[in-house]
Design a protein around this nucleic acid. Structure first.
Length: 557
RNA sequence: GCCCUCGUAGCUCAGUGGAUAGAGCAUCCCCCUCCUAAGGGGAGGGUCACACGUUCGAUUCGUGUCGGGGGCACCA
């Protein structure tokens, strides 16, 4: 429909321009949008406003000429000029109602498209260090990342979800030393406890399990503790496996599944870090200074050069990161989206610089990044800072256990990721209309309830006379339903899952208003079937949208 | 000091180069003999942080100032 109207407008614009001398039409950036208010029709264009300047004419006069020159169309019931020179289009009722049949015919596929053309995209998210349970910040990354993955899939991309473990750095040493200290019975507030050690209760659990020579399984690995306090290597591998197992449980509770888990340690053992370093040296973008090896990241927009290999021979953290991303490129991902906390934003320039230095024909702005800001958790009007298990932060699992998976996912994905987020536990727990999750789910459940009470042939709803659907509530609902595919497409191209959450809230609101104003199970058979058909389509779109958020769509509440 | 990001109603947040800047909560007033009131309708509440610029038009874009957060190590 949008393409159809755009074509009509382009034809009209050409006619007008010919009447007014020559003008470059290709650079004309007019928009055709859905107006905020239903009073302004189904679509509105600013074409006349855009043409005003080059044609040196009053926008209103141009708008009249455009309407004059507009080819006739069966879909358009009315056009009007409004405001400063907008042209509003009102579709005829039949064109508006047609979306119902489209939704009922395509079902779960309504809203999907093939923009991605089956190309490979990787979404890397969570990527927590195996040094503790996942906290609420990881939860935000998990909710946003998983929703992005679902959105990209719905847009025709071939999606891989990946989790990267930094299991090889100094933080793992800290973890190991912390467990050693606990095995020896050193208290966390004792002076001899490692200064940068981890102090959560879970360290105790690891120490106890290690001494008991337990076995832990984490996705692809199985490790049995030696129980020997002096066996640092066993302590390290056991601790990492133990915490990866914990994080697996956290992810399971959040109903998130990854396709690939990558280990930083594997980049070393497989020689990929060395390969990357050699390639960088060969590229000529490195130099030795003061006993260290430097990468000239300033060649690629960084504000200072960065050390690659320290004087002690170890690599700085971004080197394996570059090797990792070079590997992603080799694996054929034309697009990679890294979802991470905003506190890591300084890595973006370095990773991209490193990839450019490798001279592998990687685009300058590859990979994409989606950064999320901090989450603060509130309960009873006060900030919650501590968790028993982790000590210094609120764990994801605590949150899920307290407010449920659906509410947690919704709240963490429903905000722009670059805004700081306040997670109100009381609100997320509320089983009232205050809570947007229940508000949306309730709309779905209400429809299910009506359809069940009707108890007719639901499949037949795809072939009913819809001509009675023309009151204000129905018009608004039809417009909302027909804009769902654009919402899905935009949320993916903008990498902004929260826009989908907002859409669903609006759709639920439209449904509740309608529900309150009209009855569906009425004697007039034709009107009844038409209305049931409309709410049935609404139910489908609510379900499709909630699926993309990873939130359930209950039939009863 | 430099860089990134945010600043919109009392609170939590949407939104946009254009039409009267929206929603929920909170406050106040209405609506169940009726398909789930986990709902609906209405009222009040705004210098879109501030200033200057670009534009026919700026809350949106640019520059600067102020404020919150983050980043600026041979830490990760």
């Amino acid at each position: 429909m949008k393409a159809h109207l755009t074509e009509l407008l382009t034809i009209a614009a050409k006619t007008i321009v010919q009447n007014n001398g020559s003008l470059d039409l290709d650079n004309l950036n007019f928009t055709l949008e859905r107006p905020k208010s239903a009073e302004h029709g189904d679509f509105a264009t600013n074409l006349a406003l855009v043409l005003a300047k080059p044609l040196k004419q009053n926008p209103l006069a141009i708008a009249m000429q455009i309407i004059e020159a507009l080819p006739s169309s069966d879909c358009i019931a009315k056009t009007e000029i409004a405001g400063a020179g907008f042209i509003n289009f009102f579709l005829n009722a039949q064109s508006q109602q047609a979306v119902i049949n489209e939704i009922l015919a395509t079902g779960p596929n309504y809203g999907r498209n093939n923009i991605g053309k089956g190309q490979k995209v990787q979404v890397e998210f969570v990527s927590a260090n195996p040094t503790g349970p996942l906290h609420v910040g990881h939860g935000r990354g998990a909710a946003v990342g998983d929703c992005l993955a679902r959105l990209l899939y719905a847009n025709g991309w071939n999606v891989t979800r990946e989790f990267y473990y930094n299991d090889a750095g100094a933080q793992i040493d800290n973890l190991t030393l912390s467990v050693v200290a606990r095995c020896k019975g050193i208290a966390t507030d004792d002076a001899s406890f490692p200064e940068n050690g981890y102090r959560g209760e879970y360290i105790n659990d690891i120490a106890t399990a290690f001494l008991a020579e337990e076995t832990v399984v984490a996705d692809d690995m199985e490790v049995t503790a030696s129980g020997d306090i002096n066996d640092l290597e066993s302590m390290r591998t056991f601790s990492v496996a133990y915490l990866r197992h914990e994080q697996d449980l956290d992810l399971k509770a959040f109903q998130i599944k990854f396709d690939v888990f990558s280990l930083e340690s594997a980049l070393y053992t497989e020689g990929k870090v060395e390969q990357a370093v050699e390639a960088l040296v060969k590229s000529g973008h490195t130099y030795e200074q003061e006993g260290a090896l430097w990468l000239k990241t300033t060649d690629f927009g960084d504000d200072k050069d960065r050390v690659m290999r320290k004087t002690d021979g170890g690599y700085t953290y971004f080197v394996p990161d570059v090797a990792y991303h070079a590997d992603k490129w080799k694996r054929g991902f034309v697009r990679v989206i890294n979802e991470q906390g905003a506190d890591h934003h300084s890595t973006i320039t370095r990773v991209r610089a490193g990839l450019q230095a490798l001279d592998m024909s990687i685009p300058q702005d590859w990979p994409d990044y989606v950064l999320h800001q901090m989450v603060t958790v509130m309960r009873g009007g006060e900030e919650v800072k501590l968790s028993k298990r982790a000590g210094s932060y609120v764990t994801l699992r605590d949150l899920i256990e307290e407010v449920g998976c659906d509410a947690t996912r919704y709240f963490l994905a429903a905000r722009r990721s670059d805004s700081q987020l306040v997670f109100d536990i009381d609100l997320a727990r509320a089983q009232t209309n205050d809570n947007p999750v229940y508000y949306i789910q309730y709309a779905h459940a209400r429809i299910c309830s009506v359809l069940n009470q009707w108890n007719g042939d639901k499949a037949a709803l795809n072939h009913v006379d819809l001509s009675s659907l023309n009151n204000a509530h129905e018009t608004v609902l039809l417009q909302r339903l027909s804009s769902y595919p654009e919402t899905v497409a935009n949320a993916a191209t903008e990498l902004a899952p929260h826009t989908l959450a907002n859409y669903l809230k609006d759709l639920a609101s439209d449904l509740h208003s309608y529900y309150n104003e009209y009855k569906f199970l009425i004697d007039d058979e034709a009107v009844k079937l038409a209305r049931l058909s409309l709410i049935s389509a609404t139910k489908q779109v609510l379900k499709n949208g909630l699926d993309l958020l990873g939130v359930s769509a209950p039939e009863k509440m």
